[in-house]
Every structure is written in C-alpha cells, then in structure tokens.
C-alpha cells in the first residue's frame, strides 16, 4: 500500500465505451492480486477532487491494466491519458479473491464492467482448474468477454446469447454445481450479486462477491464505504479495507 507515480504505456479502446489503461511498474505488478484495486488520481490538479477506484484487470510482466468506461468527468479525463503520461495511484488496496480454496471449477460471473477483475484471476488460477464464465450485459455492446475463458453470454435485450439476465442463464446451467466442486467468483451490479448470493447460500456453494461503493480514500480512514455485515456484533464492514471481495456468507446486500 503506497502512493506511486507510474508511466502510462498505452490507452486502448476495447469496445465502444470501454477502455484499457496500461501502465508500467514492476513493483506494483508483483504486489497485485486479483480482486484488489487502485485508487487513481485522474488529473494533476485537485479537480476533480477525489481519486477514482479501479480494480486491477490484468497484470502481464510489469504492465498493469485497468478497465473502465466513461461515465463522468473523472473517467473522461482518464480516457485522455496517453503513452508517456504518468498516473498517480494508491494501492494495491483491499482484499481480493481467494484462489486457494478447495475447488476444481472456477465459475466466473460478470455483469457489464464487472468483467474487469477476471483476466488477472484467470491468469493466477492454477492450470488444473476448470473455468466456466457467465457474462451479462444490457445489450451486445455492454458484454465484455476480454481474456475470459469458456464464456456463456446473456443480454437483457437478447441481442447476443441468452435472452435474459446472467443469473437466469446460470440457472439453466446449474448442473455444473452438482457435477463439479465449484467456487463462484462474481462482480457486477448489486441485484445480480444479491440473486447469486441467495442462490449460493441456499445451495451451499462457495461464493465470493466483489462489491462496489462510493468511497473517498480507499484505505479505511474516511469511513465512507460501509457494507452491512452478517455478523451482528460488527454491523458494518468497509468495502475498501475489509473488501472489496467478500465471501457471500459475510455480508448483507
């Protein structure tokens, strides 16, 4: 956990509104694990004021990749970065996915930009493990399958893949949970995480959820990003410091 300034090596447009920011740092690349994030300063001034949190999408050698879409002033500025610029970032922050559990099949579930952390997860996953990915989006342009394996797609409008949401699609494939020892890794909108959480808890499936919340600092001092804990003794956990990845049994969504 540190403040660093690292050089941008590329800014690539992955598809319509989705971009990949690639930056070089051997040290940060080595420290980063799947599901963790960096809090990035998008400008050299204090406008906009706050940093923006982005999960680490991939690490290849000494290159870190962040995936983002333009949805405000901050991400617009980020999309203007070019090779040779420096970015100021804090991280790696938070707790990522746990890949050391006893499972033989990783079930990846992503909604929209929720695909972001999974290239690194697959990169770090032992080659003996099987992978099954379920990716959802509103429509074809919102479906991100970058560097994912064994992908099944669902779209709300049916423009590609299954016509429906990603959870409905998983239900159609639910035999994978009985035929394999699965662990679910999910990232996406809250309704998707909630449905998945209920399903996994009811069926005793090991499941980790990457959550999101507005935050300022990203490392626990602003207390701005609480998430309700299932432990009544400590009512809130912090998304930035205790998460952003939580086991499905530990939080209330």
């Amino acid at each position: 956990m540190q403040i660093s300034k690292i050089p941008v090596v590329a800014l690539e447009q992955l598809q319509n509104n989705v971009f990949l920011l690639k930056a070089r740092s051997k040290e940060l690349a080595e420290k980063s694990s799947p599901g963790q994030f960096f809090n990035i300063k998008v400008s050299d001034s204090y406008f906009p004021l706050l940093r923006r949190p982005f999960s680490i999408s991939n690490v290849e050698n000494d290159i870190l990749t962040f995936m983002f879409d333009i949805h405000g002033e901050g991400t617009k500025l980020l999309s203007l970065k070019k090779e040779g610029d420096n970015i100021d970032l804090i991280g790696p922050l938070g707790n990522g996915f746990n890949l050391d559990d006893d499972f033989d099949t990783a079930v990846i579930v992503a909604g929209g930009l929720g695909s972001a952390p999974f290239p690194l997860l697959l990169n770090k996953l032992s080659k003996e493990k099987k992978v099954k990915s379920f990716v959802g989006g509103r429509s074809k342009p919102n479906v991100i399958t970058w560097k994912l394996a064994n992908v099944n797609i669902a779209t709300d409008d049916g423009s590609i893949g299954f016509h429906g949401n990603v959870f409905q699609l998983i239900k159609k494939h639910e035999n994978i949970f009985t035929e394999n020892k699965c662990k679910v890794f999910a990232c996406g909108p809250n309704p998707m995480l909630k449905a998945l959480q209920e399903y996994c808890l009811a069926n005793n499936i090991n499941c980790e959820l990457s959550t999101e919340c507005a935050m300022a600092c990203g490392f626990g001092i602003c207390q701005g990003c609480p998430i309700e804990s299932s432990d009544k003794k400590s009512p809130y956990k912090l998304v930035c410091k205790d998460g952003p990845v939580f086991n499905a049994k530990d939080i209330l969504i």
Binding site: P48, A214, M215, A216, Q223, G224, C225, Y236
Partner: peptide, 11 residues
Amino acid sequence: RKGNPPQRIVE
C-alpha cells in the same frame, strides 16, 4: 456508534 447506512459520501 455504527454510523449512517450507505451511501455516506458524494463528490
């Protein structure tokens, strides 16, 4: 004090 429920901050 457990504090307020989210969302707690906005830029």
